[in-house]
Design a protein around this nucleic acid. Sequence first.
RNA 1: GCGGGCGUCGCCAAGUGGUUAAGGCAGCGGCUUGUGGCGCCGCUAUUCGGGGGUUCGAAUCCCCUCGCUCGCCCCA
Length: 424
Amino acid sequence: MNNLRNLRGTVDLLPNQLIKWQNVEKIILEQLSRSSIKEIRTPILEMTELFIRGIGEGTDVVSKEMYTFLDRGERSCTLRPEGTASVARALIQNGISSNPLQKLWYMGPMFRYERPQAGRQRQFHQLGVEFIGYESVRSDVEIIALAWDILGKLGIQELNLEINTLGDINDRLNFQKSFVNWLEKNKNSLDLDSQNRINKNPLRILDSKNIQTKKILENAPRLFNFLSEKSLKRYSNLKKQLEVLNIPYLENQNLVRGLDYYTHTAFEITSGALGTQSTVCGGGRYDDLIKQMGGGNTPAIGFAIGLERLILLAGKELGVPRNTDIYIINQGLIAESLAINLSRKLRNYDLLVELDLSGASFSKQFKRANKLKSKSIIVIGDDEATNNVFKIRLFNEESFGNREETISFANDTKLENWLKTNLL
RNA sequence: GCGGGCGUCGCCAAGUGGUUAAGGCAGCGGCUUGUGGCGCCGCUAUUCGGGGGUUCGAAUCCCCUCGCUCGCCCCA
């Protein structure tokens, strides 16, 4: 056996799997286009510094999950672990001030160096959407609705939307001060991971899954109690509007999400069907990120959907391949070129045409046509080539046996009529 | 990074110390090089993830290693 293998945590997507991917992507793209959201493509490779500054040094993603290496010029490069930082960078670099309001999407591979498991790979794919320059609650609602609708268009059932608010920077700093204080006092009761986070990333302790820690946290100060009037108002407006749209949500005060840049709204969409990695969509508002990265004061909100997880959730019917409409059986030099020409003509009718290129025996070619469940076949051999005709017939159960029709290559009308009665 | 499970053909597998490593699916060839579904016949692992050891003898026992997988942490 071969010792040349793909890298751990990467996968080959084979033709039969890609049918489902392509269908899912098509549905997504249609919905994005209808929502007037424009595509942006940024490099997969960026300076390491971008993610450290954008995502935050204390985050798990940056501290232990990045695919980082030195290039030949000794520059530290990183394969992007997420898309928002790159988009922000691209906008700043290309001068967003000329158009501060933009709705953008991107789709592509992301990389995180973790142990693979169900629903988690080192190279995975995300669809990301970012609304840049929008501050209103309406934009929060629209972006959540968009994520919700994309999942809906794919026929995915039984999703849970969880929401929370993290307040603005001041709310957060006030809370953090008091929270860290409390944590220090109760340090010994916390699990080890949480103890280590006290100084690095205290907010993340909030959604610890350690049972003991969870219990102790019940008595900790709550972020919610540190929110300003304005932040609270914003949050209740969000909830009201979601209710108007009939989008069901659950409030989860422990939902803080992993990245430093979030402010106000944070949300997640999960599905029980995914097993332990249940999040299919995660997002939130990041009003300070672009300014922090050197741009102007630009509020923004976005989300990312994990495509692998989406594919797991999407129905089987999206993975069904399109049937061959016409299989062209051909043999002999002249027949070959006639066949190629005919296949081109037929494809103009948006038919799926499979041209046999093997030169194998007729019976072999028939068997292949049958294996592909082709709806019809065309036969061109020496006899036909000599007379400048081809034979065509349906190839299903009922038409078993010979009921061929002979059509001249010059007689396009007859061909078109046959197609119209039988295939189109 | 830490736990659990597993590694026999492209896929699913039998085999648990004794001459040639079942079988099924898929694939390829033939019966049938001008007409497909069925059937029949044949071919496809000197080798059991890799290395070392025990033994007269190992896919089967032991050690190491690699890989896959599920879970923890965390995320998509």
